Simulated assay, not measured.
Amino acid sequence: MEMEITFQDIELNMAFQTKEDSIRYAGRKLVERGYVVEPYIETMIQRDILTTTYIGNGVAIPHGTDEARDFILKSGIVVLQVPQGIEYNGECATVIFGIAGKNNTHMDILSQIAIVCSNEDNVKRITNAESKEEIIQILNGK
């Protein structure tokens, strides 16, 4: 199953001062793309406080808490490429996926991302990608 991701869902060459800045940016991007409403962003911060959203291999997947369901308009993913990396609880994330899953689809989205990103080469390719098209191809297993 291909991830529904468009050029508008991807930001290249991002840099952040703090992990919270990166989570807030991903949240604002989800709002801007019409996936969630504004209050979702705070639940993303809360989720990361409860348990880190860093999953390994340089990847973080900030997303809302279970209580955030009402703030999700439709399922969506945004991708932030952070070549210099940002610290997530002592680890360095170079790829950040902000996600929102409507009707419990977030587990499907998470597993799709985990499958692609379990291969360190894919994460390196996303981190070093020079175009949004390249990132979409990697995420879709090409």
Rank of each mutant, 00 (worst) to 15 (best):
I5R: 01
Q8E: 14
Q8N: 12
I10Q: 04
I10P: 03
A15S: 15
T18D: 10
K19I: 04
D21P: 07
I23H: 04
I23R: 03
A26K: 00
K29H: 14
E32D: 15
V37Q: 12
P39H: 14
T43L: 08
I45F: 06
I45A: 04
Q46A: 15
R47A: 12
I49T: 15
L50Q: 14
L50G: 08
T51L: 15
G56N: 08
G58I: 00
V59T: 12
P62L: 00
D66F: 06
R69C: 00
D70H: 10
F71M: 07
I72V: 15
I72Q: 02
K74W: 01
S75M: 07
I77S: 08
L80W: 02
I86F: 01
I86C: 04
E87P: 07
E87C: 10
Y88A: 14
N89G: 14
N89V: 14
I96A: 09
F97S: 10
G98F: 06
G101W: 01
G101Q: 00
H106Q: 13
L110Q: 11
S111W: 00
Q112R: 15
I113V: 02
I113T: 04
C117A: 14
D121I: 10
V123G: 05
N128P: 00
N128L: 09
I135P: 05
Q137N: 15
Q137P: 03
L139H: 05
K142N: 15
